[in-house]
Each structure stands twice: as C-alpha cells, then as structure tokens.
Design a protein around this nucleic acid. Structure first.
Length: 947
DNA sequence: TGCAATGCATA
DNA sequence: GTATGCATTGCAA
C-alpha cells in the first residue's frame, strides 16, 4: 500500500440533500416533531466514509452565499432552484455542531460554492504530495480529477465508487478530465440553470467533443456543421462560452490547506453522544461509538488487524432425536454477540437460532413448550395474499429474541387440519398473549381453519400507526428504522411478481424457516421497542381499547363480505355502453375527427388548439391544457361538445370503475365481495378500503347511484340497514369549540345549514333561500377543512371579497369557533402535534415553517385532523360495541361495511326492530359530547333503498 | 412492465 | 381548503 497521505474533502450540501431525499417518503421525525432526515442521512454517509476509508485528513466543505462571480456573469445562475426544504435548513446548525464536536474542520468561504473550495484545496494538497478524494455524488467534480485527485461517489443502494482518470474518460468519453467542463458547457445543466448550447444534449455533446475537443475549437469551426445545428450554435457562441465559464470550478479561492488542521483525530465523544441523544439517534449513536471504538482498539493492538468475524448462523432441523433443543439450553451454546458492523444487519450478520420442527413427536414437544409461554409472536406463511383463498404453508413462532421455530404445514388439507388442531389450544388460549405484524391477516387465515385467535393481542403495525401515523408501517421499513436490520425480502425468496413467481410452498424448507422465523423474531423485537413508546399519553388506551379490538371486528366484516347482484350490474353495463357509444359519435362529429376522449392530452389539444373554445386556456403544471371537471363546467353552457364530454367521462368512469369492475371482485369461493379495510394508512385515524374500495361507491348523481342497487342482502330473509351519523364533524367542532349558538341549533334539532344561513344572512329561518343555505353549507364544510376566502370563492359563485365577507360574518356569528381554530394552531405550534378526543395524535412538522404555503397546509391540518380523527374514533368505538352486542346476543345480523360515518348491516328480518334500536343507541352513545349525536337509519332491499 | 400525471368517486 | 383508492394515458425502461 502506498504511504501517500490521503485527504478526504466532503461536499456537505450534496450529501445532505441526498440524505434528506433518501428519507423523503419516510422522514425521520423524533418525538419533538423535528425532521431529522437530513442530519441522519448526512451523518450516516460521513461515518460510512470514515469507517471504510479511515482517512488521515478530512474536512467538510459548505457553500456560503452562493457564487458571487457566477451570478455576476449570469443572472439566472441557479435561479431555478426551489427553495431549500425546511428539513434541510433546520439541519445545518445541528450538522455544524456535530462536526465541531467531532473535531472535523468545516471549510466555507463567503461567495464561493463548495465545488470551488474543494477544487482549490485539492490542488493545494496535490502539490504537497497528498492523494485527495472528493466525496460527492455531483458529476461536475469530474473536471477536477487528476492522477492524485479522485471522486469518491456514493452509489445508489449503498457503497462507493472511485473515479480516477480512466473512469472519467470512460463516463464522459473524453481524453482529459478537464474536457468535462466543455462537456457540461455544451449540454448545459438544468439543476444549476447552466444554459448550454441550444439543441445540444448529452449525446450531441459527446459527439461534438470527440470531434472538436473543446468548446473554443467547436465555436471556431462552426462552418463545418450542417443544418439546424449550425444555425443554432452559430447564433449562440456567447452563450456557449458563458456556459463553459459557469461550469468551471474555480481553483483560486482564498483558502489554505493546512495539513495539521485537517488531521482526523478523536472526536469529543461525550459531546457527540449528548447531541445524538438530544436528536434521538439511537442507532446512529451506536454506529458512531463502534466506528471510533474500533479505531481505538485497532491502533492499540499490535497483532494483525482482525477483520470482522464471520457470524454464527444456524438453521437446524430438529428431528425426533433432538428434543433437548426445545429445553431452552441453546442460548448457552452457539450464541455470540451481534457483530458490530456499520452497515445494516441482516440474517447473514446477526446471530440467531431458527429451527424448523419436524412432524410427530417433535411437534408435540414443541407445542408443550409453546403452551408454557406467556407471550408468543407468530407469523403465518401462506400460498398467497388473499386470506380467503390462501392456504397455510407454515407458521413461525418466537418468544425469545434471536430464536424461533417454524412449523411447516402439509399440503394435504386433512393433514393440515390435523396439525392446526394441535395448535388450537395455543391460539384459543385466553392467557397467552399473541404478538404479530398485521394480525388481521393471520386471524383471517386461521378463521378458514375454524381457529379463533383469543387472548390479548399486540399488533406491531397498529402500535406503530399510533406512534407515528404519518409513516408507513411495513415490517421491512420498521425493521430498518428501529432495529437497523434488513429482513430477507419476499422477492429474494419467491422472485419478482409476475410470470415466474413461486409460491411459498415451492421454497426449500430451510429458506422458509429462515424467512418466516426471521419475521416472527423481528416482530417480537419491534414489540419490545414499541410497547415502551406506547406508554406516552393516551396512546396505550387507544391501542388497547380501540385499534386492537377493532382489528377483530374488521377481520369479521371482511370475511363476511357482501352480496352483489351481478345480473343487475351486467344489464347496467349494457345500457351504459350504448349511451357511451352514442355520446362518442356526437363528440367526434362536433370535433370533426376521432380521438381518444379519455386522454386529457388529446382532449386538450382538440378543445383549445383545434376548436379554440377559449382565448387563453389554463395549463396544468406539466404544460398540458387543464381539462378537469371544474374547468369544463364553466364552458358547458357555451358549447354542446363540452357537456357531451362531461357526460362521456362520467359514464366511462362509472362503467370502468364500478359497473364492470365489481363483478370481477366477487370471490368465487364465497360468491361475495370482500373488501380489505386498511387500519393504518389514513393519518387522521380513518379507515380506508381497497380491493375493491367500497367507501367510494357513487351516490351524488342519479346515474351513479344505481350502482348501489347492486349491493343486496344475503338472502330473502335479510334486509340491508344503513346507519348514518348526521353532521358528525360539525357536531364535533361545535362541541370542541363550545360554540353555544351552534350547539343549541343541534340540540333543537334544527337544519344546521339553514340555521347557519339564517344567522349569517340575518334572515328568519323560514325565509332562508336555497342559495343562502347552500352557501352556508359550503362555509360550514370549509370550516372543517380549514377555510380560506380563496378556497371558498372557488367553491361558490361568490367573489373573493364576498367570500371574505361571508367568512368574517360567519366568525362573528360563531366567535368561539374562530377561537377554537386559533387554539388548535397554537397548540400545534407549541407541541408539534394535534390530537383527537381520544388522544390520537397527528404530528405536524411544517407548522412552524417559514414557507407560508407549507405552513398554511399544516395549519389546515391542525384544524381538520382533530375533527376528522375524532369522528373516526367515535365510529370505531361504536363498531366495537355493536360487534360485541351482536356476538353476545347471538344475533344472525352481521355488520358488513363502514363508510367513515355510516355502517351497513345485513339484518335478519326477525331481528330488525331489535337491531335498529341497538345500532342507533350504540352509535349515538359511543362517546359523550356537549352536542347530541344523531343517527339516521334506513332499511331496504338494496343499499340504495336503505338510504 | 412500472411510474407519474390527470381525473374523479366517496366522506 | 381535509382524508382516501383506482382507472386511464403516455412515457420511460
């Protein structure tokens, strides 16, 4: 190895942005509501570099105040950059503080970019005999590469690549790295707003460079070019030279490379520890400690450096002769400490003991051991994702971290049932707690084997939903976030989805075991993690009293499904088809040509380019003409074609999304539609429904409403009952704000929108016009969504100023409502979250954003989330109570659907009166507010009639 | 084949 | 102005 000294220069902003966006779908938010994604991302990269390369010398370089020289040359330089995201701005001071504590020099020079600082330092270091590595993903740096200066680029998916001269030559098709400047100058750079030569992209730039070698030479020989390109380039010679200058990294920044200052020495460990703890970087802290602890030991030991040892890993199969393995003595034998590794742990790097259990005696012994536990994590493996058709392939169990067992299931149905019978005492035990990730799925699978899962439940997915509802809750994400562990991916096991995907049944037993037990093991670890965090506030109660009991309710509703009148839908489809056809003919005639009406792009071109229906049409953000419903509605009265298009769209949507789609969703084995309720996706606490979505079946238009006729009771002996909360969100906001005027209106059973209109427009209740009521209704809803005059005027015929006036009068009428709204916003500012009546939280990181648009959105969330969320809490309570009564009362009636403020039941006719009372009582009394809750009931032979 | 953009259904 | 899910087009890979 060369003993040449190595200097690493880190391009701070580039890594910070990269880190920030790596977490963009899943931002890291700590308990104080701070977005720490950028800090985390940057620190991960920095520690990674230190750990991998152990540089002798290291500095981190920042931009400051942009490049004065470049802006002087070209006003638009970097002008199109979006404003730096809030999460990055707030990260910078933290990062600087950490770097200081780590004794890593920060290099900045006012008026220069990090590129220039790095360029200058690397040249200076080169003269002093250093090898320099520029740590950055930014390709622009390639121009600086020499024999002694390299790029050290993080690559997607982890790891780094080093670019020396040969790599740059290959990447850019140049002979000398300096030509990268010409290359960038020619093709331009959208992100830096370097214009480049018009019409020249990457391909052409490479070609020209190969031919002419430099920008100057190209511009001097434009006579050799041909056609359009010749014209364009000759006309832009100045632009070309300017672009080249802008792309050139400066090498004469007034900074000095002082070797002594740049030496990497031991950080101030207590200080760094303190900062990391403050930011709640548990995993990062341990990485940090390992990174520097390792360095300490490796310098102390004189013996040859020991690389990280390979890890013990055991996948054993317990045959009948190995009973003792169940006795619990295994932990003493092979287990060693988890390896200290910076990178994520995986099944390859973590010590574990996963075992499959053979049939016969081994299984019996295993179950005996299982029954002796107080709390067990389990995970079912099946042949597919649909729990109604999926068959059990195996079940994994774990009750001790790092250890678990896998019980494979025979393919033969009778044998499988025999095996599950052995497990019945476990699943139906009231005393053994069951832990799982998305237990609703496992419960549904086991229900097919007539096994009920009883006893206390702990669902890690639900737990995390309450802890941080804005995140996603896949096990893989949770494992990576909280355990720094990457589980075996299902794709690794059964392949990408599509043609050649295997079934779990086709996977070798040892692989099944590794995968399945790993899931159970991880889930168990996550549980230990989350149960502590649930302690905060009312979260534990919400978990125990709402989400976990609801899981069983939802499982039952989903298994039950709902009956669908397919014959009816088929005839509806025919009708729609002929109507669509005739509209199509009319539209083509009016447009003078045939085109795809469903394509917004083509439609826009026809309407606005060809027919020129409007002087200056509105464009969407992608530059297309906007053809949304709101836009077209304005034009409808002037042009027949518009109304026809709107009708066409409506019918086409109806047909494809509902009338034709629903019959395909009927489950053959039950003949019914089984939706899947997602309990952990809506940040406010609502449920969502998919495959199919039964929460958006049409109702507003006459035509659409017909689809509801297709939802019918299970048989002649049943009727559908629909129970709706009337105005629940308005009642909640009235109650929470303690606005007496509104509360009294509800108490008196008034028509709330008319009542609001009467007060706001100052007319007697009987004289409220339809228009006044309608406007009052819009404002009432607007309040729930966090009104603005702008939004209101968009929704009504009112102008912006009329809207403002209406809102002002509204607030004057209901002063406490206004107070409540500002209280919510203040609360969010102070605490970083808002909460529902049951204490369900929603964190709002942007509430203090300096960006007014972003902040405004967070403020509307602060108003809406408690309202929408409280309504969700209340109906969840009602569902749990009703479900309980239906079971204990041995009713034949089943709860089938939930649509946010509505419940639908399949009612056994003899039970109708009892059920009506039961449902209304439970719903209206699910939660006590200052305002009475009101539930409207409807009964019918289909869902439409029930309304 | 997968993804973003657009549009639209519900509460 | 809040919260979702899904069909379609059209482009990228």
């Amino acid at each position: 190895m060369s003993d040449q000294k190595r200097l690493f220069l880190v391009d701070a902003y580039a890594l910070i942005f990269r880190g920030y966006y790596a977490f963009i779908k899943n931002p890291r938010i700590n308990s104080k509501g701070e977005d720490t994604s950028a800090i985390m991302g940057f620190m991960n990269s920095l520690l990674d570099v230190i750990k991998r390369e152990r540089p002798d010398h290291l500095a981190v370089c920042f931009d400051k105040g942009g490049s004065a020289d470049r802006v002087e040359m070209y006003e638009a330089y970097k002008a199109n950059r979006d404003e730096t995201p809030e999460g990055i701005k707030t990260a910078i001071p933290h990062i600087c503080e950490i770097l200081k504590a780590m004794h890593i020099p920060i290099m900045v020079k006012e008026g220069y970019e990090a590129d220039d600082v790095i360029g200058t330092l690397s040249r200076q270091a080169e003269k002093e005999g250093y090898k320099t590595y520029m740590v950055t993903p930014d390709k622009d740096f390639a121009q600086l590469v020499t024999e002694n200066i390299f790029m050290y680029r993080p690559v997607f998916g982890g790891g780094y690549e080093t670019w020396g001269i040969p790599e740059v030559q290959k990447k850019f098709e140049v002979t000398d790295p300096m030509q990268v400047i010409d290359f960038l100058g020619m093709m331009g750079d959208a992100s830096d707003n370097i214009p480049g030569l018009p019409g020249v992209g990457e391909k052409t730039a490479k070609k020209l460079l190969a031919q002419y070698g430099s920008m100057e030479n190209l511009l001097a020989n434009t006579h050799e070019l041909k056609g359009k390109m010749k014209e364009k380039i000759e006309a832009s010679k100045e632009l070309g030279m300017l672009s080249k200058k802008l792309a050139t990294i400066m090498l004469d920044v007034p900074v000095t490379f002082n070797a002594k200052d740049f030496e990497l020495d031991q950080p101030d460990i207590p200080k760094v520890t303190e900062i990391f703890q403050e930011l709640e970087f548990r995993q990062l802290l341990s990485n940090f400690e390992k990174t520097f602890a390792l360095e300490a030991t490796s310098t102390e030991t004189t013996s040859n450096k020991t690389e990280i040892k390979s890890t013990p890993k055991e996948t054993a199969s317990a045959g009948a002769g190995q009973f003792s393995l169940f006795g619990g003595d295994i932990s003493t034998s092979k287990e060693t400490e988890t390896v200290s590794e910076f990178t994520r742990n995986t099944t390859e790097t973590s010590s574990h003991f996963y075992q499959s259990v053979a049939s016969g005696m081994a299984t019996k012994l295993f179950i005996k051991n299982l029954m002796a536990q107080n709390s067990v994590c389990f995970d079912t493996e099946t042949t597919g994702l649909n729990p109604i058709t999926a068959e059990l392939v195996g079940i994994a169990f774990s009750w001790e971290v790092g250890k678990g067992f896998y019980l494979p299931f025979p393919e033969d149905k009778n044998e499988a049932q025999e095996l599950i019978e052995l497990l019945r005492p476990f699943f139906e035990s009231e005393t053994i707690e069951k832990i799982g990730q998305n237990l609703k799925y496992d419960i549904k699978v086991l229900a097919k084997y007539k096994v009920e899962v009883k006893g206390k439940l702990f669902d890690t997915m639900l737990a995390h939903y309450l802890i941080n509802p804005d995140m996603r809750h896949n096990m893989d994400i949770l494992a990576e976030t909280y355990l720094n562990y990457t589980p075996i991916s299902i794709e690794e096991l059964i392949g990408k989805k599509g043609k050649n995907q295997l079934s779990m049944r086709d996977v070798a037993l040892d692989k099944q075991t590794e995968y399945a037990v790993e899931d159970a093991d991880i889930t168990l670890q996550l549980k230990e993690h989350f149960e502590k965090e649930l302690g905060a506030a009312n979260t534990q109660k919400l978990f125990d009293d709402i989400e976990v009991p609801l899981l069983r309710v939802l499982a039952a509703m989903e298994l039950e499904g709902i009956n669908l009148n397919e014959t009816f839908l088929n005839s509806l489809s025919e009708q729609l088809n002929s109507d669509i056809k005739s509209l199509e003919t009319k539209i083509y005639a009016e447009a003078g040509e045939e085109f795809n009406i469903a394509s917004p792009k083509q439609l826009g071109d026809i309407l606005f380019d060809k027919l020129k229906l409007v002087d200056k049409p509105k464009k969407t953000k992608t530059g297309q003409y906007a053809t949304g419903e709101d836009i077209l509605s304005y034009l409808a009265k002037d042009h027949d074609i518009i109304q026809h298009i709107l009708d066409y769209r409506g019918l086409a949507k109806l047909k494809s999304t509902y009338v034709d789609a629903l019959p395909n969703q009927v489950e053959p084995s039950t003949g019914r539609i089984h939706t899947d309720y997602m309990q952990t996706v809506a940040a406010t606490g609502r449920l969502s429904s998919n495959n199919p979505n039964l929460q958006n079946i049409p109702i507003r238009t006459e035509r659409g409403r017909q689809v509801r006729k297709a939802f019918i009771p299970r048989s002649e002996d049943y009727m559908l009952l629909a129970a709706d909360y009337s105005q629940i969100e308005l009642r909640i906001i009235a109650a929470l704000s303690n606005e007496e005027t509104m509360i009294n209106a509800f108490k008196n059973g008034e028509d709330i929108h008319a009542s609001t209109a009467s007060k706001v427009f100052n007319v007697p209740l009987e004289e409220v016009t339809r228009e006044q009521r309608s406007n009052a209704k819009t404002v009432n809803f607007g309040i729930i969504y966090g009104v603005s005059a702008f939004g209101l005027s968009n929704q009504t015929d009112l102008s912006r100023s009329e809207s403002k006036e209406l809102i002002d009068t509204y607030y004057a009428t209901y002063p406490k409502l206004r107070n409540y709204i500002s209280e919510q916003i203040d609360f969010a500012r102070e605490n970083g979250y808002v909460q529902t009546v049951l204490g369900r939280r929603r964190y709002l990181n942007d509430i203090n954003s300096r960006n007014a648009v972003v902040r405004g959105a967070a403020e509307r969330n602060a108003v809406n989330a408690p309202i929408q969320g409280s309504a969700a809490d209340i109906i969840k309570l009602a569902m749990i109570n009703i479900f309980k009564k239906l079971s204990t009362g041995n009713f034949k009636t089943k709860m089938l659907l939930q649509v946010h403020d509505e419940l639908v039941f399949d009612v056994y006719k003899p039970e109708l009166e009892a059920i009506k009372t039961l449902v209304k009582t439970e719903m209206e009394n699910a939660y006590k507010l200052e305002v009475p809750l009101d539930v409207e009931l409807g009964v019918g032979h289909d869902w439409l009639e029930a309304h």
